[in-house]
Design a binder for these strands. Structure first.
Lengths: 172, 172
DNA sequence: CACAGTATGTAGCCTAGGCTACATTTTCAA
DNA sequence: TTGAAAATGTAGCCTAGGCTACATACTGTG
């Protein structure tokens, strides 16, 4: 690990040469994602950043699915406690889940997942398992594996997940 | 949705043991982190969430270090373009970097890292390299490895990083 | 040397996530 | 059956990160 390309060779002759910068492209409603300038690194960072956004949704959906599976229902208070947040925070996020069509919930009646929500939950669950297994396979202590997986899983692309799967089948 | 969707009934079981809930502990200035209930999963999620917070700082610090290393200076506009954000966003984050003692910058004079900033940058750089190498080692395509590493690296704990290092030395 | 054109900086607005305080509904046990 | 306790929901505030619009400082020609 010495001759490896030290990360993204951020060495493009620094600024100096910048010639345009019209007005940051008046278009793009949701923001950047593909400015003509340096799509390479910028998009990579953007991707990583955007992914982080859905992370919370994924956690909620997986937990809700889990709670319903084990106890028959998912209540805001339980969700809040399991995630370590206050209940208003959980409720607010659940509202977002509803807004995005992943869950349904009527006041005082518990939360349920829509079909899309269940689908997402299953994907997340599978991915989580694979990530944990991979970490264990490369020698990460069980406790660290479980803990880190929680944060890592949201940034694992399909390609990487597939590679993890191949590695596990091969190594196991 | 046909059999008893009126939540509550079934799972008094879930909520069981909760006996206190005085007022969400008037203490704790920065929030939760260790409520007596279910420390296991909650703290795990909390950890992952908190880590995400410093991710941006890490990216900035590493990038600034790189820019200075290759071009002798790090200017807000370059930083913004490289990270794919608008320059006001970069400037605002740089202000936070200063507030946290990771960088110094005088108006119109470029950004520089403090010793703490350089230290962090080096750690981040090393970690990034190890994460990419590990991904490659388990068979992740180069492109996906580079891209995913950007998001993954911020969630790799020291224990996991050490395990990655061992795996690489052993496997390579 | 001036001035146009970048680069910087400031102001103000938005969303996601959190929290506390307070209000309302349910539940359950006496 | 009723009332206290717990769960749920609402309001309002805060920070991090983003963005656009606008203002100011630099700087490199002509």
């Amino acid at each position: 690990m010495s001759e490896s390309p030290r990360g993204r060779s951020i060495g493009r002759s620094i600024g100096r040469s910048l010639g345009r910068t019209p007005k940051h492209t008046p278009e793009s409603p949701a923001g950047r994602a593909e400015l003509p300038a340096e799509p390479t690194q910028a998009s990579r960072f953007g991707k990583a950043r955007t992914a982080q956004s859905g992370a919370l949704m994924e956690d909620y959906v997986e937990l809700i699915s889990d709670l319903i599976g084990t106890g028959g229902e998912a209540r805001p208070t339980d969700i809040a406690r399991r995630l370590g947040v206050s209940h208003p925070t959980a409720i607010k996020t659940i509202a977002r889940l509803k807004r995005e069509g992943l869950a349904v919930a009527k006041p005082y009646r518990g939360v349920f997942l829509t079909e899309a929500g269940e689908f997402l939950a299953e994907r997340v669950r599978t991915r989580h398992r694979i990530v944990v297994d991979l970490l264990l396979a490369v020698g990460v202590p069980a406790e660290a594996a479980e803990q880190d997986a929680e944060g890592l899983e949201h940034h694992v692309s399909d390609a990487t997940l597939a590679a993890f799967g191949r590695f596990l089948r091969r190594a196991q």
